[in-house]
Amino acid sequence: MIRWDAISWRFLRVWRRNFVTFRRIWKVNFLTPLLEPVFFIAAFGLGFAGLLGEVRYGGAAFSYPAFLAPALIAAAVMNNAFFETTYASFVRMYYQKTFDGMLATPLSLEEIMLAEIVWSASKAAAAAAIMLGVLSLFGLLLWPGALLVIPLAFLGGIAFGAIGLFFTGIVPTIEMFNLPIFLFVTPMFLFSGTFFPVSNLPLWAKPLALSFPLYHLVELCRLVCLGRSETVAFLSLGYLAVFAVFFTILALFFMRRRLIR
């Protein structure tokens, strides 16, 4: 049902539309990635420091803020991309009828949806870049390797943006996004090795964490920011890529089913 031949460079025009609206409120858009890491590092670095001491991870010891910093970026990538293609895309689709308007032009549905996903990934990568700068000020990251976080954020953004748009294709109402957030986003945020190494989890819980795309993104971010990781990098990259492609296909399929009647 997906028309692959209807995908062309024109999807960048839709990307540009989102970029133009983003620019209008860029100050607000940049505030979260600017302040969020400061809050987390302050809370965990100052408040938790006495309780935690050092974290053993990947055969080395790290201060808790240093261990946490790459995971904060990965979690922000997930949130930026996922919320963009769920709530924001749903508003464009349902309330603003933006896609209906676009479908009267030489754009195909596939191009519009691909642009939504790529846009969400771009937004996630921009947020990651800002956080990278802020966290570097605390001296928590290895340079220049940490710059690789930006392409990783883009890949992760595609994965989370795609699954977000898939949910947009199937939820009956906007309130229903609570469900994937409660069952998918929140557990991932807590159990993907973000706040503690997955190697600390009991044996039965590990496969669950390994199935989370956020886990792989967190691991890859730690690898480039700290030089240590608990996974094999290319397997994690492969998992994210397969996840991204799989849910992009599902998103295109369900959005076509939802919109084209």
Binding site: R17, V20, T21, R24, Q96, K97, T98, D100, G101, A104
Partner: peptide, 15 residues
């Protein structure tokens, strides 16, 4: 080559 004026308001309120 066509221009479509849809029944719903599909203008972009963000712009």
């Amino acid at each position: 080559r066509i221009g479509v004026c849809q029944q719903d308001n599909t203008l972009d309120p963000d712009l």
